[in-house]
Design a protein around this nucleic acid. Structure first.
Lengths: 206, 206, 206, 206
DNA sequence: TATGAATGAGTGTTCATTCAT
DNA sequence: GATGAATGAACACTCATTCAT
């Protein structure tokens, strides 16, 4: 058990941060390689070159480790997408930016995406984790929905159910990593452009 | 001891078929109720009103049971969708039929859909099952891709990458059960129409 | 995990009852031999000649096993003491019966007494178990207190604080097993008589 | 590396004594707060404001720390009781002094008593500690027994088995902390007087 | 002296699978 | 065919103890 009650975001030592990062990285690698269900602490520790007990030393519960993985990936992805999206001249362009950004991120960080998708899928029945993971997803969905609504209000988008569109865009984006994995030769830029086109046609007026 | 060589679809006795069906149904019910991770043989057997050992008797491995669940649901779904799709006058209408059919099927068989989505998510690493489950999916994808290609050839659909469209339609459809689950009050017919509209706009010419 | 939710006192099979009894007996033996703290499932199972997993199969939680041990011993002891106590002509005689009965029970079932005293001591911080174990004790104490009060009301006993007397009688009785253990040669009948005398002098009038 | 041969009471540096005292105090506090079973070195160290490793540095084994806790509390208690007992004009008064002193000590040092009772209960199997802890107890018992014998020789006490009386007095006194804990509103002085009365009636002549 | 990251042996618990009945 | 008691390997997690700093 860790010496301190870490609930209050106390600052961590440099070495502790490094270890946590290393463990998170090993977790991502492990899940991508053998799948969430087989990603035991023994497996993760082996890939990290440490003892299994050390994982629990740095993450009080398995759930906390997985949550940290999701948090880490989401933050990284948010940064990448925000850079691509902000300052867009129109909602259509913003949507393209979001979709193309996501696809490129997938291509550049395939293991991360595989990891979080499997964690999210597994957590759907893990009781405690459910809240956090679903909430995370619900927020993303609501934001997207809001963007569609605004685009409709200024007549950039046709009339459609923003919720359905948000769910579908999300789903199509999240299907990308598996597709790129299954077909390694895929032209990523083309895939990104096609996906952006698809939803551009789906939302645009006339 | 069970008859050894079952791999070649030997005919099963009536009673064996009935038991297998009962176990499959109980498995679906169990996963929908408590989630894949907690769906142990004891739990499934309890719901089926049988003993845990009998499951292994009828399905040599856990994996085989799960595979049978997926097969059963896919067959049922295929039948429902084929009825809706065949005899369509155009590819656009066929696509609408497929999408709307899928959404309605989701609404009518929520437990089945929950079960197969959880199994598919978990099976992404189960070695042997991976092959089969992915193959299943790959086939469905290829069929859809082919349909888009044909629709393009007779100028019903605009030019787009059929593969990307197939992946996206699939993803959007598969996102439906979770959405209906998360928002129980959703108007299913409206959701179906909106989703069909979305992809109709995405594929149609001009 | 057991096939049934056993919360409702469902009847158990003969073989299950036998196993549970065997495990309870092995638990008592183990605690008496190596102490509660070292009485792991591995140790208990070794003494019972079974696999550790079987213990969990019959007792969902460690706590449940320990509770069953206490229940078993308490029931056995209650039966023995009731036989000795009931039909007493006076409260003084009843008190003697209780004390002497307890001491003789200790001498005849030393391991049981050691086991429950250690479990009770350990459970004093086990959160969940606390309630039940303490409640058990509190009830016994209250009954004893009530007996003293009644004895005072009919002028058999002198005036004293019934609670203090109850606590002290209880403590003195519970100290017996350790004493008999520490001094194996002790004359049990004499010990019983002395202890009964002690409290007889303490409670009697004049 | 620690000086090897500490067994012979070599003189300790001032700072070492201070640290040991601080650790012992933190151990008592920790056990009283969360119970012996959860009183890990990490928890104790947290309360002492030091690192877990330092505990092992000062106490070669966990057992040694616990032994020191018992020793410290026993010494403190002995001092308090001796002050109350010595110079008594009679054995009856000495006994009263002992009992009342003990009860008041319990009320004034609840955490210490909780700590040693839990350690003693847990240590009943800790091999090495067993010897020491039991020996400690045996000595106290023998002293008490001797006192009763002397009181009988000068006709202050009636005839009874000194050993049984000693065990019972000890047990009744040791039951006090738990009782005061369970019933916080208890009038300590009254409890002390009642307990002293109880055994005064039990030992006195006629 | 003191730290705290790290280890490794241990825990209770879960569960697919086996097998005597 | 069917039972359900039993196993054994795996799991996450705990913690006294070690040791490089």
């Amino acid at each position: 058990m860790q010496p301190e009650n870490r609930s209050g975001d106390q600052k961590r030592s440099f070495i502790e941060d490094a270890r946590r990062g290393q463990i998170v990285a090993a977790t991502i690698e492990t899940i991508a390689e053998i799948g969430y269900a087989k990603a035991s602490f023994v497996q993760i520790a082996r890939r990290a070159g440490i003892s299994p007990g050390l994982i629990t030393y740095h993450f009080a519960k398995r759930e906390e480790l997985m949550k940290q993985v999701m948090l880490t990936v989401h933050n990284s992805m948010d940064a990448a997408l925000t850079a691509r999206t902000e300052g867009s001249e129109s909602y259509r362009i913003a949507l393209r930016g979001l979709i193309e950004g996501f696809v490129h991120y997938c291509a550049e960080h395939p293991t991360e995406l595989i990891a979080i998708s499997q964690i999210a899928a597994a957590a759907r029945d893990a009781e405690a984790a459910r809240t956090w993971s679903e909430e995370q997803n619900a927020n993303a969905l609501t934001e997207l929905e809001e963007m569609f609504r605004e685009g409709q209000e200024c007549d950039e988008f046709r009339e459609f159910a923003p919720r359905v569109m948000a769910v579908s865009v999300m789903a199509a984006m999240e299907a990308t990593p598996a597709e790129l994995m299954a077909r390694p030769g895929t032209d990523v830029a083309a895939y990104a452009k096609e996906l952006a086109d698809l939803f551009d046609f789906a939302v645009r007026r006339a």
